[in-house]
Design a protein around this nucleic acid. Structure first.
Length: 718
DNA sequence: GAGTTTGAAACT
DNA sequence: CAGTTTCAAACTC
């Protein structure tokens, strides 16, 4: 309480301070008043506060070790039920092991719970992701990749945990990153081998988070946040789906996507922070270190006037609670003031639904990026700042620039002047966009895709798989696809892999096969294993996703559809689909087993965390399995697809164009949407397929990707 | 460590 | 929606 005392003191001050933030201040007051009540539960937090801080750090560290995302679950528990909290940890333990409980503590404290988001998320497996959709929509605008990310994240979540995790995962996966998260991400102990954002994300995920997805890497930080939030439920779910979850997942997802992403980022950052905190006692020191060592990813705020209840505060913006390391004054961004924080957050969101949405989104362009990178043309980061920067004097070469800070290039969304962003100049970005803009090509691609889809559609197994929760393959695709968000990361990581495209699928399969353990997959698994061995863990996972997407695109339109959901729609449809799918997966013991069984792949680097992550990954594996199955069963299809793809390439514009299609511009471009609304997904699938092809290096569908259609998908409601 | 610069966030 | 102010991080000395 004493610590609270500080907070409480701060609160009154805050109230006085922020007449502007009356609402927030009011909320704070309420919180304060409530604190008595709240304190009781959270009180454990408060008491812990001092001690907890240490604990948190430790927990965080542990989390980091295990996985950033994992940490989130505890929050969930924390948010809703004390019991749940316990459960979350327990489950976590089951997966990861001992440290979970500790993590929970830390998580709970730091992580903000985003009740709204969670609540919003519909329980239904159906995916009433309205909120999520909205979020996605916004995100989608930024890039399909986000969708993918979301999907992937969802997938992951389901596997590992139920509800919220999906959300978290999504964020992580999502390239949409909050700058804060980005900054924070690296550090954590996760070892973010890859310091950088989305690109690194993959690596990061591997080490820290389950998903190899690039997004995760970033998200990992976000995941942390998520964990904290009530959504923590989700997080908890993520950890242990078994708990409540499906329902919670649904609820959480929509809002969570946004939140989770941020949270994830934060989470990672938090971990980093925790480390720093441990290392550094004084906030300033920490802060300096943080600032100096962004790599740590542990940023800490130094807010003087905002009480850390405005987005000026990096912590708040990231959706995480301020830590001891913070040098903030009158901070209300603490677990004790959870309500206040939530209110403030809600206010911000009510004003700007995307206020906490990841600022950085990876774009399909990443594929591009991959190809481009191979060619040495593409900018390092496929990710782009959603709203762009507005730099006037920094030339986008200093951290003043959010794009630069996020290690992403500037885009058309930027209003910067004299852009010299080393990650990609605004001008450059525009060029790619133009290419993408070529709708005619897109239409062609779509047609081709449609034809392919039809052919594929003939193969019902895919559909059945898709809708059969148990059938790992069908759902997986979506997951994979979602994981694609990671693609960006993949792309970054995988140029070479990318080359592998034709076989890489198998590489993907291994993990997948492993997870599924389906006999059919067995040989595929072998191949996969072989390939996987060669691949880095992170990259491996990414590759899988990547490959999967490709395969899916080629194989079945349905997969594409799924992918489309994730990709296109920024949100809703994909996530919902993913959710349902994921949930089913998660439910499946197989998933767990997979996790347990296959943690080994690079991802698992960090043991327990790996498992946790692995769960999320599992979806991926399934996807791979599906692919493998598809391959096995539908070799013909696969072949056909491959054959087709070449055609597509021929017809399709240059890969670059495809990239463009996927690029953020895509959204704007709004390529021809799926001819079949029914198949919006299909159309999207086409797009996805496009991506997939792109991944393979085939640009064919890129036009489709624009897909955009996320909107349509949203309408579809899955 | 203090002060300045910068651009996002918040406000009007 | 545009302009202004506020804010805290990034940066410089």
């Amino acid at each position: 309480m004493e610590t609270k005392g500080d907070a409480s003191q701060a609160m009154p001050e805050q109230d006085g301070k922020d007449p502007k933030e009356q609402s927030t201040s009011e909320t704070k007051k309420e919180k304060i008043e409530e604190e008595g009540n709240i304190v009781e539960q959270p009180s454990h937090v408060c008491p812990n506060f001092v001690s907890d801080l240490v604990v948190d750090h430790a927990s965080r560290q542990q989390q980091c070790n295990t996985s950033g995302a994992q940490a989130a679950p505890p929050h969930e528990d924390y948010g809703e039920d004390g019991e749940t909290v316990l459960h979350g940890p327990v489950q976590l333990i089951t997966h990861h092991g001992s440290e979970v409980s500790q993590l929970h503590r830390g998580m709970s404290r730091r992580c903000l719970q985003f009740e709204e988001a969670q609540q919003k998320t519909p329980m239904d497996g159906t995916y009433s992701l309205d909120s999520a959709i909205t979020i996605i929509g916004s995100i989608s605008s930024s890039s399909n990749t986000e969708l993918e990310i979301l999907d992937s994240s969802q997938v992951e979540l389901p596997s590992s945990s139920s509800k919220k995790q999906t959300m978290f995962v999504s964020k992580p996966s999502g390239f949409g990153l909050h700058l804060n998260s980005i900054v924070n991400t690296l550090p954590i102990g996760c070892s973010a081998s890859e310091p950088i954002m989305s690109h690194h994300s993959a690596g990061y995920k591997i080490s820290c988070s389950k998903l190899p997805n690039l997004v995760e890497r970033v998200s990992s930080t976000a995941g942390d946040d998520v964990l904290q939030t009530k959504a923590s439920l989700a997080t908890g779910s993520a950890i242990s789906e078994s708990l409540h979850t499906k329902e919670t997942l649904n609820k959480l997802q929509p809002p969570e996507h946004q939140i989770t992403l941020h949270n994830n980022r934060r989470f990672s950052s938090e971990h980093a922070d925790n480390f720093e905190e441990f290392n550094q006692s004084s906030p300033k020191k920490k802060r300096k270190k943080v600032s100096s060592t962004d790599g740590d990813g542990c940023k800490r705020c130094n807010c003087k006037k905002t009480r850390c209840l405005k987005r000026y505060c990096d912590c708040f913006a990231a959706g995480i609670y301020c830590a001891e390391t913070c040098a903030c004054q009158g901070c209300f961004n603490r677990p004790e003031y959870e309500d206040t924080v939530l209110e403030a957050r809600q206010q911000k969101e009510s004003h700007n639904p995307l206020a906490f949405a990841p600022k950085i989104v990876q774009h399909v362009t990443e594929f591009h990026a991959i190809n481009m990178e191979d060619a040495g043309l593409f900018t390092p980061s496929s990710g782009r700042h959603k709203t762009g920067c507005n730099c006037k004097r920094s030339m986008c070469v200093k951290k003043y620039c959010e794009c630069y800070q996020a290690n992403v290039g500037c885009s058309n969304a930027c209003r910067c002047e004299g852009c010299k962003n080393i990650h990609g100049r605004k001008e450059e970005y525009g060029m790619t966009g133009e290419i993408v803009s070529n709708r005619a090509n897109e239409e062609r691609l779509e047609r081709m895709a449609d034809n392919k889809f039809k052919m594929i559609a003939n193969n019902k197994f895919l559909q059945a798989e898709l809708y059969d929760p148990r059938s790992l393959t069908p759902p997986t695709p979506s997951f994979e696809y979602s994981s694609h968000g990671k693609e960006a990361a993949k792309s970054r990581l995988l140029p070479g892999r990318y080359v592998l495209s034709s076989e890489p699928d198998f590489s993907m399969l291994p993990s997948y096969a492993k997870s599924t353990s389906s006999p059919s997959n067995s040989h595929g698994n072998d191949m996969l294993r072989k390939t996987s061995k060669t691949l880095d863990v992170v990259s491996h996972s990414q590759e899988l996703d990547y490959n999967i997407t490709e395969t899916i695109g080629q194989f079945s339109p349905r997969f594409d559809e799924l992918a489309d959901f994730s990709d296109h729609t920024p949100l809703p449809s994909p996530s919902p689909i993913i959710m349902a799918w994921s949930s089913s997966k998660t439910r499946d013991a197989a998933i767990v087993s997979q996790l347990c069984l296959y943690p080994g792949s690079g991802r698992l680097s960090s043991g327990g965390s790996l498992q946790w992550r692995s769960s999320p990954i599992t979806p991926m594996t399934r996807l791979g399995e599906t692919k493998t199955q598809a391959l096995d069963s539908g070799c013909g299809l696969y072949d056909i697809l491959e054959d087709d793809t070449p055609e597509i390439f021929k017809e399709s514009p240059t890969p670059v164009t495809s990239v463009k299609a996927s690029s953020p511009h895509k959204k704007r471009v709004s390529p021809p949407r799926g001819h079949f609304q029914e198949f919006q997904s299909s159309s999207s699938a086409s797009l996805k397929s496009g991506r997939k092809f792109v991944l393979k290096s085939v640009p064919s569908f890129p036009p489709l990707t624009p897909c955009i259609d996320p909107k349509d998908r949203t309408q579809q409601k899955y």
